[in-house]
Computed example of a mutant assay.
Amino acid sequence: MNPVQGKIRVGVLGFGGLGQAAATILAQKQEMEWVAVADHKGYAYNPAGLDPQACRAVYQSQGTVGYLEPYGTLSHQSIQDLLEKAEVDGYFLALPNLPNTFMASVAQQFIQSGWRGVLVDALKRTSAVEQLLTLREDLKGAGITYLTGCGATPGLLTAAATLAAQSYSEIHSVKITFGVGIANWEAYRATIREDIAHLPGYSVEKAQAMSDQEVAELLDQTNGILALENMEHADDIMLELAGICDRHQVTVGGVVDTRNPKKPLSTNVQVTGRTFEGKISTHTFTLGDETSMAANVCGPAFGYLKAGIKFHRQGFYGLLTAADLMPQFVR
């Protein structure tokens, strides 16, 4: 692994909307070097660093970074092949969690490969995090520091709720409300499908099986708006594990506009509780409307990755969530 003063070598798994945004963010960082990327058809690796624009152009024109010359390789087992070839300190798993068992299966690939380092995901569903919890001892034994639920929600807003809770002797509720605006849903196909899976009458399996045409038809029926309530979001289990409150006290919902980059409402978290003086109060933390979904997901993910590297170098392995430690700002 790099010395502490050296650049952190980062890989990104998945090169859809979030993966491409992650690459763009990494290009602006001095403390991290983006050296590896994989999609479902291939991978690219350059220890001196990859060019986000070149990778994006190849991916959009040919469907995989595997065609990137001279660093790309076509592969039907791209993650496994990349792990064998690349020297990487930490990976951001910008992967669609469809089916719901997918992220846990990726974690098992890392465990079985013998790779040691830091993994960060932006998982949404409670049940997906529960599956990772069963791998805690395996991750620890493999020398992997895995940080889960480190996007916006779960992630940034879960961490904010954890801090806000400290003013109270007793927590009554945590309410997370998000607004997402994107100009074109096709830039975030997997994310939108995961959101559709939360709608009444839909499931992860049903959303995964939908063709792009079927998704477009659904969005036509709703004028591009997805209104989501009482979502199965891992903020609940993360706050419960952190001892903040019971999971049933946490609610998550929001509005996604798939045709307009302007947020339909401001993303915020409200933490209500009773102080030691017996007063009931609410803390509200609101994200700036100008910050995009990608900024609020990828930024925290890399902040947690940096914190994870510090923990890993001190010999701490296993599973943590965004409510367990503070992210560190990546310069």
Rank of each mutant, 00 (worst) to 15 (best):
A21G: 09
A21S: 15
A22M: 09
I25C: 00
L26Y: 08
L26D: 05
Q28E: 13
K29A: 14
E31R: 09
E31P: 00
M32H: 11
M32D: 03
M32W: 00
E33R: 12
W34M: 04
A36R: 12
V37F: 04
V37C: 12
A38W: 05
H40C: 02
K41G: 12
K41L: 06
K41A: 08
G42V: 08
G42S: 05
A44N: 05
N46Y: 04
N46V: 03
P47E: 13
P47Q: 13
P47W: 02
A48N: 14
A48D: 14
A48I: 01
A48R: 09
L50N: 11
P52T: 11
C55L: 15
C55N: 09
C55G: 10
R56H: 07
A57S: 13
A57E: 15
V58N: 00
Y59M: 11
Q60I: 00
S61K: 13
Q62K: 15
Q62A: 11
L68R: 02
E69P: 00
Y71V: 00
G72P: 01
T73G: 00
T73Y: 02
S75N: 04
Q77S: 11
S78F: 05
S78R: 00
I79D: 06
I79A: 02
L82S: 04
L83A: 08
L83P: 03
K85S: 13
E87Q: 13
V88A: 07
D89W: 10
Y91W: 15
L93M: 14
L93E: 12
A94S: 13
L95V: 15
L95T: 15
P96E: 14
N97F: 03
L98A: 10
L98F: 09
N100Y: 07
N100G: 08
F102A: 14
F102G: 00
M103K: 08
A104V: 02
A107V: 08
Q109V: 12
Q109C: 10
F110L: 06
I111V: 15
I111Y: 10
I111N: 14
Q112N: 15
Q112F: 03
G114S: 05
W115C: 02
R116V: 09
L119I: 11
L119A: 12
